[in-house]
Computed example of a mutant assay.
Amino acid sequence: MVSKLGSSSDPIDRYIFEHSIRLTDEQNEIIQYTSTLPGRLPRMLGSVDEAQFFQLIIQSMGCKRCIEIGTFTGYTALAIASVLPSDGHLFTCDIDDQYIRQDIWKKAGVDEKITVKLGPAVDSLKTLLEENGPESFDFIFIDADKANYLEYYQLAVELVRVNGLVAIDNTLWGGKVIDETDTSKETEAIRKINNFVRDDPRVDISFLRLGDGTTLCRKK
C-alpha cells in the first residue's frame, strides 16, 4: 500500500486507516498502479485520508464545480469526481498526462465529469478565470509544483466563490518547514505560502495535521 496513511507504521495511523478509510476497486487500482512507478514517484500519491475528507466536505457543501491543481495518476480526481452530482464537474490541471489513468476514471463511471487541462497550471487557471469569471467554483485543491504555490493560491482565491474552499496540500512538507537549516527552494516556497495565508484577510483558515499538512481556506 503506497498511501501515506496505509503504509505508516504508527499504530494510531493504522487504527485510523482500519476504522475509517473506504476504498473502491478503482481507487485501489490507481494506488497499485502508482506503486509500480519508478524512483520516488509513488510518494507523490495523494493521501487517502485527505481525499476522503475532501469527499465529505464536497458533499456537505453541495459542491458542483471544482478545480484540482496537480493530477499525477488521478487518484484525488477520482475521489472528488465520484461524489460530485451528475451535473457537477472537475477541472484537473497538470503539465502533461504521462501518468494519468483516465481509463480507470472511465471504469469508475466518472470520466465525463472530469476535464483535464494540460500545460502550465498558471495558464490553465487564467483560462478558467477568463472563461468562467471570478467566484465561479466551489472547491479548489492545490497539490502541484511548490514553486508556484503562491500564484496558484492567488488565482484560486479569485476563482472560488464566497464561502467556497481552497485546500492546500503539503503545508507541513514532512516537517521541513520547522527545520531552520533547510533552505531548499521547495521548503522556502511552502514557508512562503504558509506565511501568506496566515496573514490573508480574505480567508478564514484551518491548518490541519492531515496527510502531509492540509490548510483549508474559506473565502469570506
Rank of each mutant, 00 (worst) to 15 (best):
D179Q: 12
L165T: 14
A189C: 05
R191S: 08
L128P: 01
Q98H: 08
L129A: 13
L172T: 13
D103R: 01
A156I: 06
T181N: 13
Y99C: 01
T115S: 14
D103E: 00
Q102C: 07
F137I: 05
T171D: 12
L118K: 02
V157G: 08
D145N: 15
E188V: 12
D97I: 03
T127V: 12
D143V: 09
A108T: 02
F141Q: 02
K192M: 12
K146N: 12
R191H: 03
S136F: 03
I168R: 02
D111I: 04
I100L: 09
K176R: 15
L155W: 13
K192Q: 13
I190E: 10
S124D: 09
T183R: 11
G175Q: 05
V116L: 15
I190G: 08
G164S: 07
N163P: 00
L155R: 14
I193N: 03
I114D: 04
E186W: 08
I168M: 02
T115V: 01
R198C: 13
A108D: 01
D97F: 02
L118V: 08
P134K: 14
L155N: 14
T127W: 11
A121N: 13
L172Y: 11
E130Y: 09
T183Q: 12
T127I: 11
K107Q: 15
Q98D: 14
E131K: 10
N194W: 11
I142N: 10
L159R: 11
R191D: 10
W105P: 10
I114R: 02
L128R: 02
W173A: 08
I193E: 04
W105T: 08
E131L: 05
I114M: 00
T171L: 10
I178F: 12
D96H: 06
E158I: 09
G119A: 07
D96M: 01
N170E: 02
G175M: 06
T183E: 12
Y153K: 14
V110A: 05
T171Y: 07
V197M: 13
G119V: 07
N132K: 04
T181K: 13
I178G: 06
V110L: 02
F137V: 01
Y149D: 15
V162Y: 08
E158G: 08
N194M: 11
